[in-house]
Design a binder for these strands. Sequence first.
DNA 1: CAAATAAAGATTGTATACAATTTTACCATT
DNA 2: AATGGTAAAATTGTATACAATCTTTATTTG
Lengths: 219, 219
Amino acid sequence: MLSLDFLNNDYEDTKSPAQKAEEYIAIDILTGNLRRGQRIVEQDLCEKFGMSRTPVREILGRLAASGLIELIPNRGAFVVGITERDVDDIFYMKSLLYPQCVKWAIERITKDEYEMLEETFAFMEFYTATEDLEKMQKINRGFEAIIYNASHNTEMESALLKYDFIIRYANLDIKYPLNYLTTVLEEHRAIFEAFRARNPEAGAEAAQIHAFKSMMRRK
Amino acid sequence: MLSLDFLNNDYEDTKSPAQKAEEYIAIDILTGNLRRGQRIVEQDLCEKFGMSRTPVREILGRLAASGLIELIPNRGAFVVGITERDVDDIFYMKSLLYPQCVKWAIERITKDEYEMLEETFAFMEFYTATEDLEKMQKINRGFEAIIYNASHNTEMESALLKYDFIIRYANLDIKYPLNYLTTVLEEHRAIFEAFRARNPEAGAEAAQIHAFKSMMRRK
DNA sequence: CAAATAAAGATTGTATACAATTTTACCATT
DNA sequence: AATGGTAAAATTGTATACAATCTTTATTTG
């Protein structure tokens, strides 16, 4: 768990074909390539991914458990997908959870975790300077993932990771303000400074501001 | 979704054998019949539930997606289970989410939903009077489920339902105070009165108190 | 011509078979 | 007796086959 893997571009090679297929389908749903209500026929997926129905059915079972599709007995898999409303719901949930997460994380973070956070923030400053949007977004996710983990509350961590996955892929129209990179960096700096100062309340406030502004950057 | 099904004792007959088996295994894990780290052999489950490996594997896939077991390639399923610490985490999460849930629910509840809540609360008073603990706990879950739904935030609802499922089955030692039934009824009454008065802030406060006291009732 | 019905086709649910991998047991060697 | 290696057994991963169910199409009937 505790590694800088997210800096590596091709970490996905460690995943099995079945896992890749699952993530591929999930992303297809979230990005809107598969529309809400659309039926997914097992045979089609078999041909698409070159596997038999057995693993395909297992994938569909897992996707159903995660809520992205609905499995109706004897009638097949139907895309539940994500509505605009669902994304709203998730942003609300994130702005509710994230401040408390930061608060706990500042109270409970270990030395190793703090050093990793420090290192990651240094990378953030670097990639902001080089204006590499893609790398910056990746490292932003890494920065937050370290904080989620440092909250030392498994449910908090898994809930926020789930929301980030959806936010990442859901068809979002983001208003990138003129200095988007530096804007986000400064929001994160406020959070990081709270960690440095070991000030949970300041962290919660900075997290609240960041979550709110993230929500506002949606069209 | 909007029904008083939870009053019916044998609603589980509507579930497929595979769904029952899944729930049975999940409960086995949460109640501690299956210990953390223990390996689950597919063939054993086949014999136990009288089905072949194909549906059993699909069940294991779903349980893995929900986090109760871990699926290691070519090595099988291992019980992850729930630690005391995990239950603590979940109580913290519930006391964070539930007040906001009640607040939203009071702001957004429909007429139909409110009538159902009112009806359910009447049943709660009745079962408290008859001192039927089991029926009371069932209807308590129903009462909260209506509120979760009335928050009209899908993620809020599914998160709290998940926590309730775990809290229900995780090996908990609950300190039942002398007047447990009436105590809980009064906590719920405070929440219901906030609904009646359409007062979100009062609802959030009452929910906070209820969640806190629920947490304290653990040994 | 519309509606109802029946049959054919398509799709899902489950069982079984086989391949790939891991675990266990046994034996030889030091 | 402890260690290492090899073969057998057990277990998982996948493919295929068949049964159950649903959907579609064609046909019949009013």
